[in-house]
Simulated scan of single mutants.
Amino acid sequence: MGAMTAPGVELSFPFTGRWMAQNSPADHVPSHGTHLFATTYAIDFVALDERGRTAPRSWRSAFSTEAPEIFLGFGVDLLSPLSGTVVATHDGEEDHIARRSPFALAAYALTQWERVRGGAGAIAGNHVVIKDARRFVLLAHLRRGSLVVRPGDDVVVGTRIGACGNSGNSTEPHVHVQAMDAADATIARGLPITFATPAGHVLPRNGEPFIA
Rank of each mutant, 00 (worst) to 15 (best):
P7N: 10
G75M: 05
V76Y: 12
T54D: 08
G92V: 01
P30C: 07
F45D: 01
G8I: 00
F37C: 03
V76C: 04
D49P: 10
F37A: 15
A67C: 06
L72H: 11
F63L: 15
S83Q: 09
T39N: 12
A6W: 05
H28K: 15
A42Q: 04
F37R: 12
A21S: 08
L82I: 09
R53A: 07
L11W: 13
G52N: 14
F45P: 00
E93R: 09
V76P: 04
T16M: 12
H28I: 10
M4E: 13
H32K: 05
V9T: 10
S80Q: 07
G33H: 07
A47S: 10
P25Q: 11
M4H: 08
S64H: 12
T39P: 04
W59S: 10
G75N: 13
D49Q: 01
H28E: 09
F63K: 02
A6F: 11
A67G: 12
P30F: 14
E69P: 02
E69I: 01
S61N: 08
E66N: 03
F63V: 14
G75T: 05
D91F: 01
E93F: 08
E10C: 10
V87D: 05
A26V: 01
T16L: 07
L11I: 06
S12K: 11
T65F: 14
G73W: 03
P30E: 06
R60M: 12
D91I: 02
E94Q: 10
T40L: 01
W59H: 06
G92Y: 04
S58H: 04
D27P: 02
T89K: 06
G52Y: 11
T65C: 02
P81N: 08
P7Y: 08
A26M: 06
L79F: 13
D44Q: 03
A21L: 09
A6H: 13
S24H: 03
F45C: 02
A21Y: 15
A21G: 08
T89P: 10
T34V: 13
R57M: 15
S24E: 00
E66R: 04
V86L: 11
G73T: 00
Y41W: 11
P14C: 09
A55M: 11
T34K: 10
R60T: 14
F63D: 01
S31D: 07
G75A: 04
D77H: 09
E10F: 07
D95E: 03
E69L: 07
F45S: 06
F15D: 10
L82Y: 12
F74C: 00
D95Y: 05
A42N: 00
R57D: 15
A6M: 07
P7H: 04
S24V: 00
P56N: 10
S58N: 13
R53Q: 13
P81Q: 09
D77Y: 05
D95P: 02
T5V: 08
H90I: 02
L79Q: 04
T34H: 11
F74Y: 11
T65M: 14
Y41M: 03
S58R: 00
G17L: 06
R18K: 08
V9Y: 09
H32C: 05
I43W: 07
T39R: 13
V29Q: 12
D95N: 06
S31E: 09
Q22E: 10
H28P: 03
E93L: 13
N23D: 06
H32E: 14
D49S: 03
G8M: 00
A88P: 05
P68E: 01
D27R: 14
V46N: 09
T54H: 06
G73P: 03
D91S: 00
H28S: 14
G8E: 05
D77W: 08
R60C: 09
P7Q: 08
S64I: 02
